[in-house]
């Protein structure tokens, strides 16, 4: 067990370093520098700029400088937002993104799982059909469409919700729904199908044959096992929320990391893209690591299967 964790942690650190390396060399293989403009910058200015940002150093030196900075969370200056460092952008944007992301995750778990369970227990009844209808709709409609529709109806026509920002409690509703829509539907579908699978198992029949109450059959025997496949979806879910935040924050004009990232992509702000990509990837790897560790506690098969060899 201990070995398994240590192995996973080393593996995660290695992955993050590798991601940083790949990203660094990708960004530096772009023809032309960050100061290449339509109107060429005069040579002297370019030289000074290059010196200021250490772009005249050999690539290897730049690489080690960057990695050194990475360890101390110093991601260098932003090329298009003069006077701002990339880590300042991350620090400024992260709280808003994290709040919405955490709320969305919470929604997905407390709504998606029970809804899927109910749907499985009432298979082929109206409730089931309704849940499946909405769940299917949810995975087919992109998050940017959901977000724009919310703005259109609830903010525009009905005027119930604010159209932008995160200034009141109400303003969280739109972004959270848009962000959780896809994953919520997916979790509901996944829970339903895995619950149906489990309910057909022999041990459930045995439990019933032993005269257990239906409630305890479901709560104690079926539910726990049905949730295992759902836990494996948490990794992709985090990724979906991360990328979803790019569009949702843009549409709802939320000053979060996702919006800064999209802005830096449009502005071709290389250091910001580089820094934020590494940050996102590292965040994701760490989250998945935490989930996997939690998973090892939940499912003994993982611990003694994968962990031991």
């Amino acid at each position: 067990m201990k070995n398994y964790f240590i192995k996973r942690i080393i593996y995660a650190v290695f992955t993050i370093l590798l991601i940083a390396t790949i990203t660094f060399f990708l960004m530096h293989s772009i023809p032309g520098g960050p100061f290449t403009r339509e109107r060429p910058v005069p040579d002297e200015i370019l030289k000074i700029l290059n010196e200021k940002y250490h772009l005249d150093d050999p690539l290897v030196v730049q690489y080690f400088d960057y990695m050194k900075g990475l360890v101390t969370f110093d991601l260098g200056p932003s090329y298009s937002k003069i006077g701002t460092d990339v880590e300042e952008l991350i620090i400024a944007g992260f709280p808003a993104s994290a709040k919405i992301g955490a709320l969305a995750t919470f929604m997905i778990i407390i709504i998606g799982i029970p809804v899927g369970m109910i749907s499985a227990l009432k298979q082929n009844r109206p409730v089931d059909y309704m849940v499946m209808f909405f769940a299917t709709l949810g995975v087919t409609v992109p998050s940017f469409v959901i977000a724009t529709l919310i703005i259109y109806f609830f903010a525009g026509i009905l005027g119930w919700l604010p159209t932008f920002g995160l200034n009141s409690a109400l303003s969280y509703i739109g972004p959270v729904i848009a962000l959780s829509g896809y994953s919520l539907s997916f979790v509901a579908r996944l829970t339903r199908s895995s619950m149906l699978e489990v309910l057909r198992q022999d041990y459930i029949r045995t439990a019933r044959a032993n005269g257990l109450k239906e409630r305890s059959v479901i709560a104690k025997h079926a539910m726990k096992n049905a949730l295992i496949p759902v836990v494996t979806y948490i990794g992709p879910m985090i990724a979906a929320i991360l990328t979803g935040s790019f569009v949702v924050e843009r549409i709802f004009a939320i000053p979060g990391m996702g919006r800064y990232f999209v802005e830096s992509v449009t502005n071709r702000d290389y250091t910001t893209i580089l820094g934020m990509t590494v940050f996102y990837a590292a965040f994701y790897v760490i989250m998945v690591l935490l989930v996997d560790v939690a998973y090892a506690f939940i499912d003994p098969r993982i611990r003694f299967g994968k962990g031991s060899n």
């Binding site: 992955t15 590798l18 991601i19 990203t23 990708l26 960004m27 293989s29 772009i30 990724a239 991360l242 990328t243 992509v265 071709r268 893209i273 990509t277 996102y280 990837a281 994701y284 790897v285 998945v288």
Partner: peptide, 20 residues
Amino acid sequence: DIVNSIPLVLYVILLMVLLR
């Protein structure tokens, strides 16, 4: 495994920026 442990959309975005 390593490639899979990265949110892939990030890399698509990176490549799009790279390929201009």
